[in-house]
């Protein structure tokens, strides 16, 4: 299947019910499930991410589109697994120990899913062991989020804890800067959900 324009538009406009309907029609019609995801839905999320970066779309629209995308993914996920579909990469994301502020983290998780990654959402208040476990379960990139200067220093502990595991570590959140990433030896930094997708691709050596 080439791009399904109606599905692409439905994701872009955040129409959850339409997305679910069209995806179901495509599944019933025997379209390759991988193609439904990669040719129509992923490009729609990439487009909204780019519009966001150009100041042509804002967080509400991006979250609403991500919610529509999720409605399609809920239908596709079991079939993708059956078909032995390989995600473009497996990543884990969570807010660090002590930090419960997860709106930014959730947005990043959605954009990563929207870009075709398999995302292990570790939730909030994650300690080093939780990140380690994710790496043992196959995460190639670990993304850490912190909103407070009081919880940010824990990122350093995670970097130490994951040393030698081979996983790349990306960090983000309001007080986090590139300088801080360099200081603690993280592999990268991003300041919004769209650049987070780009940074993850760079960390994995995938063409952005």
């Amino acid at each position: 299947m080439a791009k399904n324009e109606a599905l692409y538009e439905a994701v872009l406009k955040g129409k959850r019910k339409d997305v679910a309907e069209i995806v179901q029609q495509e599944i019933d019609g025997g379209t390759n499930v991988e193609s439904i995801l990669m040719d129509s839905m992923v490009p729609a999320m990439a487009e909204i991410g780019d519009r966001f970066s150009r100041n042509e779309a804002y967080v509400p629209e991006m979250l609403i589109a991500a919610r529509a995308m999720q409605a399609g993914l809920d239908l596709l996920d079991p079939l993708l697994q059956e078909a032995g579909h390989e995600p473009i990469g497996k990543v884990a994301i969570g807010t660090v120990k002590g930090d419960l502020h997860d709106i930014g983290k959730n947005l990043c998780a959605m954009m990563l899913k929207g870009a075709g990654f398999e995302v292990m959402d570790l939730g909030v208040d994650c300690d080093v062991d939780k990140y380690k476990e994710a790496v043992e379960n196959g995460a190639k990139v670990v993304l850490l989020s912190a909103l407070l200067t009081t919880t940010m220093p824990y990122m350093k502990e995670v970097v130490k804890g994951l040393a030698g595991s081979g996983a790349k570590i990306l960090i983000g959140g309001a007080p986090v800067t590139q300088e801080y990433a360099d200081e603690i030896g993280a592999d990268g930094y991003s300041d919004d959900a769209n650049t987070c997708v780009k940074a993850t691709k760079i960390a994995l050596g995938i063409a952005a």
């Binding site: 955040g14 967080v59 509400p60 979250l63 609403i64 991500a66 919610r67 419960l100 997860d102 709106i103």
Partner: peptide, 17 residues
């Protein structure tokens, strides 16, 4: 604590429109 509830995140997304 809202973030610990099952519904907050989806209600938040819905309420953005």
């Amino acid at each position: 604590t809202l973030n610990k509830t099952a519904h907050f995140t989806s209600y938040f997304q819905e309420a953005l429109a």
